[in-house]
Design a protein around this nucleic acid. Sequence first.
DNA 1: CTGCGACGTGAAGCGCGGTTCAAGCCAAGG
DNA 2: CCTTGGCTTGAACCGCGCTTCACGTCGCAG
Lengths: 127, 127
Amino acid sequence: MLLDIAEVSQRSGLAPSALRFYERKGLITADGRNGLRRAYRAETLDRLALISCARDAGFTLAEIAGFLRARPSDTELRERMAAKEREVGERVDQLTRLRDSLRHAAVCEHDPLVECPEFKQAVRRAR
Amino acid sequence: MLLDIAEVSQRSGLAPSALRFYERKGLITADGRNGLRRAYRAETLDRLALISCARDAGFTLAEIAGFLRARPSDTELRERMAAKEREVGERVDQLTRLRDSLRHAAVCEHDPLVECPEFKQAVRRAR
DNA sequence: CTGCGACGTGAAGCGCGGTTCAAGCCAAGG
DNA sequence: CCTTGGCTTGAACCGCGCTTCACGTCGCAG
């Protein structure tokens, strides 16, 4: 019932070295061994998807490890998650403005582009 | 008319060491010297705001340097900017879903939180 | 003239998120 | 039995974005 590390690596898109690295950092655990080879439960794939997602979103591995240990009773952690939610929300706004700037820059005729007043204004809004 | 490095550092929120670092990387130039001290034109502050903004958005300094050199005639670069715009757009969508997941996680009663089906589904959507 | 403090330089160091390397073990196939 | 190939380990290394360090040079106040 356990998946070999090669299988997990392939299906998660993460290198075996990354899986071992995550194990050292306490993000995942190997649930068995085939000889010396690590073997993982299928749910580990869900967990890895979550980790990749959060890491892409700019969370540090240490933060992710914290959230993974979360239990409903941990109110301090809940507060940190709520704070993180606000932070992510701000980031969404900022990136949205940046995307709009890029959209304009891609068709703007100013030379250099950086001097375009529309672009500059967008940057000011994005601060 | 030129601003001393200390002034620029303070007003941009960047350490003098960071300004020198950016100069080595070709992101900014010192437009003069007061004795040995670097001095910058006021527009450098705009430029630094742009750099900070883009860096916060996940651009590498090398990418930023490329965009700063952009001229309207540089069609290859325009294409890269358009590509980056799409990329940022995807990131906005992903972060939006992540924010929604966090919002739910902060009030969810599952133990551990990671096992909440609603949360898991949100992660799948965010992939 | 003599500190003092903030700048200058190049080189080294740091934290993050891994990858790569050297050396070794193990299971399967020829 | 022996090779092959993919895993194991700890340790070293990498690229990024800076900061810190050691050492030197300014300009100004006392």
